[in-house]
Structures are given as C-alpha cells and as structure tokens.
Design a protein around this nucleic acid. Sequence first.
DNA 1: TTTCCTCGAGTTCA
DNA 2: CTCGAGGAAA
Length: 835
Amino acid sequence: MTAPRSPAARAAELRLRLEDANYRYHVLDEPNIPDVEYDRLLRELDELETAHPELVTPDSPTQRVGNAPSAKFAEVRHAIPMLSLGNAFSDGEVQDFVRRIADRLDRPLPKFSAEPKLDGLAISLRYEHGAFVQGATRGDGTKGEDVTANLRTVKAIPLRLRGGKDGHDPLKLRGKDWPAVLEVRGEVYMPRAAFEQYNEHARLHGGKVLANPRNGAAGSLRQLDPRITAQRPLAFFAYGVGLVEGGELPDSHSATLAQLREWGFPVSNLTEVVEGADGLLDYYRRIGERRDALPFDIDGVVYKLDDFDDQREMGFVSRAPRWAIAHKFPAQEQATTVEAIEIQIGRTGAATPVARLAPVQVAGVVVTNATLHNADQIARLDVRVGDSVIVRRAGDVIPEVVAVIAERRPADALPWTMPATCPVCGSEIVREEGEAVWRCSGELSCPAQRKETIRHFASRRAMDIEGLGDKYVETLVDAGLVRGVADLYRLTRDQLLQLKLVLDADTPDALAASVQPHLPPEGSGAVLAAIQRLDAADEGWRAAALAQSIAFAWNPKKIATKWADNLVAAIDRSRDAALERLLFALGIQHVGESTAKALALWFGDLDLIRRLPWPLYKRVPDIGGEVARSLGHFFEQAGNQQAIDDLLTAGQVRIRDGHPPSAKLRDGLHLATLLVEAEIPTITNLRAQALTEVLPTAAGIVDAGPEAFTAAGLPEASAAALRDWLEQPGHPKLLLDGEAAIASLLALAPEADTAQAGPLDGRTVVLTGGLASMSRDEAGAKLEALGAKVAGSVSKKTHLVVAGENAGSKLAKAQELGIEIWDEAQLLAFLERHA
DNA sequence: TTTCCTCGAGTTCA
DNA sequence: CTCGAGGAAA
C-alpha cells in the first residue's frame, strides 16, 4: 500500500478491492485473490468501520453478513410486472412458437437469445444511482415480498454497480454509465456442490437437511433472520431488466445481458444467440446433454426474441409475452402421493418397505414404486400413507422419495410402523440387535423367501437357467410343482406346458378359449364344462392340467411347445455347473459371488466344504466369524444337506473343475489355530499354542480338566473359560471334527502351489463403462486369468482402471487419485500380447 | 478402537 | 447405484 491516508479514503479503496474480487469470482469466474486475502481485507474494512461508524454505507461489503431479524416481509409492488412464461414441452410446440413469430414479423429466421432456465427463485433487484436499494421476490408477478436484507447477503449480487460517473475509480474499472434507476431481474439459486456440502454439514451437526437446491434457495430467501441466509451458499444469475429510468439500455436482449455483466452481474455464459426453430432445438439438445454436468439445476431453457423492437411488435397475451417461451426438460422431480406402503420380503427375509405411488412422469418414465430402504429411512422422512411427496430420479436411475410436503398431509395420516408379522407367511418380523433391517423369521416356510431363493438359484450369475423368469417361479411355487431348488430338475415338459396355460390365461374363460382350438369338435363342450367346474371349485391348476392333456393328446403338434422345450434344455444345461456357481446359487447368507469363488478356490471340493466345522472357513481371506458362522449354520440344517444331495443325485447336477485344496491352506493349519478360530473366550494365539504343546490332540483337550489347562500354561480364569466352553453342547464335537478336517486338508493340499505367475499378479483392476468388444464380465474373467484381482470400486489400492464408453464416477475418482487409466484399445492390445 | 475398503443385498424401468 | 456391514489393517 502507499502512504497512510484518511480512514475514509482507505475504506473506499478497500471496498473497491473487495467489490472487484467479488466480481472476478462471481461474474468472471476468474478469482484474482485467494480467499484468505479476501477475508483479511474484509476484516480490515470491518475494523475501520467499527472505529469510524460514520463511514459505514449500506452498500459496503461488510453489510453482507446480515442484520437482526425483521418481524415479517413488507409488500413490494413491481413497477413493471414480473411475467410468467408460456411453456413448451415438445419440439412441435417450439416450432409453433417460432412460426407465429416468423409470420407476424414477416421474417423467416428470427433471432433469439437462448439461455438455460435455472431451477431457483425469480427476484427483482432495484438500483438507484448505482446502489442496491431493494430486492423483492416475484410473488404473484405484481406484488412480491421485500427480501432486501436477505439478498444483501448473497455475494454474487453486487451492492454497487461497477463503472459509473462519479469518477471515484482508482482501479479503472470498465463499464458504461448506469441509469439512475435500474431494476435487474434474475434467479437466485443454490449451486449443487454447495447444496451437497451444506447438507453434509447439516447431517453431521444435526441441522435441518434441505430437500433440494431449489427448496434450499427458496427457503433461505424467506428466512426472517438474514444472519441465517448469510450462511446459506446462494448464487445469482441476471437474465433481464425491469424498470429503467434516467438512462439507456442497448436495443437487444443479448446486448443488455452483456451490459449487465459489465455492471457487475453474473450472467450465464451458456447464453447464445441462435436463429429459427432449428437453432432453438439444437440449443435445447446441446444444453440437455450437458445438464447433468452443470454445477446447478436447470429445468429447461428459455428462448427470447433478441431484438427489443421485435419484442414490442409481438406484444403480450394476458400476462405472458408472445416473444418468449420456456422449453422444459422432462422433470427430474415430481410431486405425487403415497397410495400405500407395502412390505417386500427378500431372499434373506429382509422386509423392505416400498412406497406405491400415484403414477407420475419423472425424467421421461412413469414411476409407480419407490423403495423406502428401511424403517429408519421412513422415520427420518416421516413418510405416511396419503402424504404428498417429492420423487426424484436424477443422475442415477432409481427413483427415491426425497421429501414429504408437510403442508399437504391429510389430517388423519398416521405415522407408519413396521408390521409385526410377515404379510406373506404370517411369521413374526424381528430385528437383530444393532441391525437396521427387519426380517421375516419364517425362513423357507415363507413362500416369499422360497420364491426368492429359487429365483436367485436360477439367476444368470448363479446357475443361469435362461427363461425361468420371476413369473414362472411364482407360478411353479404356487402350483406346488417346485418346493425347493432340486425340484427344478424334476420338471417335465408336460408340466411346463400346463404351467404355460395357467400363466397365459388367468380366468377360466380365457383358459377355455386358449384350449378350444385344440379340442376335438365333438367333445369340446364337455371338456370346457369340466374346466369351468374345476375352476369353480378353486382347482384352477387341475383345470389347466386337464385342458392341456386333452388338447395335447388330441393335437400334439399345434400347441406351442418351443418355450417348454427351451426351458427344459436350459435346466438341463445348468446341470453342468462350476463349484463356485453352485455355492453362490445356494443362497447362503453373506456368501455372494466373491466369497463363493474364494471358497471354491481354497477348498476345491463341495463334499469337503459342506462338512467343514465352521471355524475352518475363516482360513480363507476375507471370511471372518460372521460369514463362517453363516456357512456353518447353513450346512448344519438337515434340510439344506438334503437339498444338496437331492441336487446331486436326483437332479444329476455335476460339478466341474474339482481340484485339491489350495496349498496356501496349509499355512499355520493346526489344532491351536482351530482353538483360536472357534472364538473361545480368553483363548489367544499364544495361549492356544502353549496349550497344544502339552495337550496335542483334541481328544486330550476335551477330556482334560481345568487343572490340566493351568498346568499347560493357561491362567486360571482362562482355564475355567475353556472348560465352560467345552461343557456347551456341540463344542467337544466341534473340536474333534475340526481336528479330523485339518488332518484331511493337510493330506489333500499339495505342498506348494504350482500356479505360475501371471502378468497382472497382485494387481487390482477396476472396470467401468461399457466395452464394445465384450461384456465387462468377460473382460474381468480375462484379466483374472492373467492374475489380476477385479474389484468393483476405485480406491487407493487400485492399480489400474479400464474405462469404456460413458464411464462415470469411477473414472472421475481414478483421475482424482492419479491411477493409471486404459481405454478399450489399450486393454485389447494388452490381452492380445498376453493371449 | 478406528478407519478404510470390499462385498452383499436390494431396487426400478425399458 | 447406494447403503450397511463385515473384514483387515493401522
């Protein structure tokens, strides 16, 4: 700084510097000083003003912090009404709009200014002699609310216009003289990143979470306490002017926006001047493509006839201009009502509440269902049946309930609670201590769980029975043809044909109609009567069987059998299964694809796996107590063992790729390990080793008393704990069986692994986006064959990311972490080299 | 014990 | 794709 000056001069200089920094940050998007520097200058100005209160001006940057709350908002009458715009939802409507204008102006290609339509709150800002004096909401267009104090806190809104005629301009700011009175119209909004950040903070500190950026902006502006508004991350874009007195504006909309920008207002840099309907539609498409990537929410684009003379010529219809229109995108959010909250029972019994919604168009599709995740989520949102809610289907595909519109709640709506019993089987619904999910306790006696189990078994990633969709599983189970997975392998072609008839015709009349063409003309009446009778007796299944067998006996060729043939063939194909697929298909809790693969790799053999004492599963990396117990629990059930036997014998399921246990399994595999893995209280690694040196066999330990344990080096309390443990039913057997299993594992496992090193050994690879030459699964399998570990998400431990078409967040994360990234060509070249 | 990373499970619609 | 929770490392 130069020589000391009067406080007044210094204050003026500080204000200019702060205003300039603000302008560069919010309008030009080219910050010229760091945040800390800005804060320092602001603090200096604040101190100066505190020392010399007479220097404080209403447009000083220090006045943005917000003053004491007001009781309510005053009414403001807009000198020039804030108009609403007509809407266009289709190309056709836009073409009509342009045609009307072209006809009236008698010009084929009128010029338009096109800009994004921000999803925020329209406001009007009044400047007198360059100073911001009043800001108002749009209200009904004629009268709004005075929110000046709140708008003052929005840093993107200039408190004083740049340029000007009073000559106090040491920084030589550019700009034209502004009118004596100027009203600027624009949109206050909350940038997405700021919204996320704000909510993150609110969640951590128990504050109020905002439903979406738009509500955030609207709610913030309507705060009676401007100090609260000051904390909200609001921004602003100018898009027009209202009253202008004592000055001139350019003669077109685009030039006016450029002028506003010079005066210090943020103006969207997506604004363009385009010609004719094609120009507009092209603009719409280009903005639409960028929509998700923009830093703020938009709900469409706005087209305005650029030339003001043209605008005047077009005039108005009622309250909307004929020279402008809003072209809306399909809404990403919609309001709808909750018609019911139903419970879905998953494969594991998880009871998931799902909201049945009155159908609404959201982002181009009709949404009728939205998951509510769990009871906690419902409680957090306080969703009730009958509520009006906001549904979103944003960047991701899956609709979610964002918020409840509290004002529209019916008076009699009751808080929702999880039902006590399963809606399908009537078993109790319970929640494990510390878990978020409630589960139906019915297990396989619950038809819902049985169906899900079978569906899972047949799914693509499991046994891959093509053609066995949800509906067929449902009907097969309901008909009693399939009770367990092994029954699938007993299905005959005839049974499937019967099933098909039931599925295709769910009323007796439809059933009769579908078989009639196949029936012998002379017996047709009698057969149809029989079907009706059986159906009336609620024996629809028998009716279908009867109809099918008669029809088929009469006319075997004409009944469509291809579907049944295909399904029988698909079931047959699945008999030849890899061990890991079968393990996954069994649907053991906590055992997904990855765990199933690891089990297959380490133990190699189903007979071994299904009889293993549970602590030994923990020898596999990534399998801990919880998963091991779950495996043990599954194989303990006689029904499950029976089902496996059934699959292998009656079902003729053959397992491919049997191999000996992994050599790595040998490491540290002895009785002491077993004692530790069995999670016996107080038995640590060291103690177990000391113990097994004195008592080297399971039988010895089972028979020994506490004295023997203390003699073997255990502290007294530990010896007692071990004895207690051994008193529990099943525990001695666990030790004895475990010892036997260890012996056989050691006998079966080879001394050293013979697998040779692949080029990607020990490397973690993540695949994202779509590949043209193969599916992600295929690519993953090829990479695994070369020794890579294919993971699902990017982290610090990832070595390589292969990004295909339309890669999303994972690619971004990889770039952020500086991880090596390949495109498809590089992947193919690599696979080629190592084929 | 805390923190980070994976895996499992559940979900919507064309 | 997201959430919750299991597993392992720090």
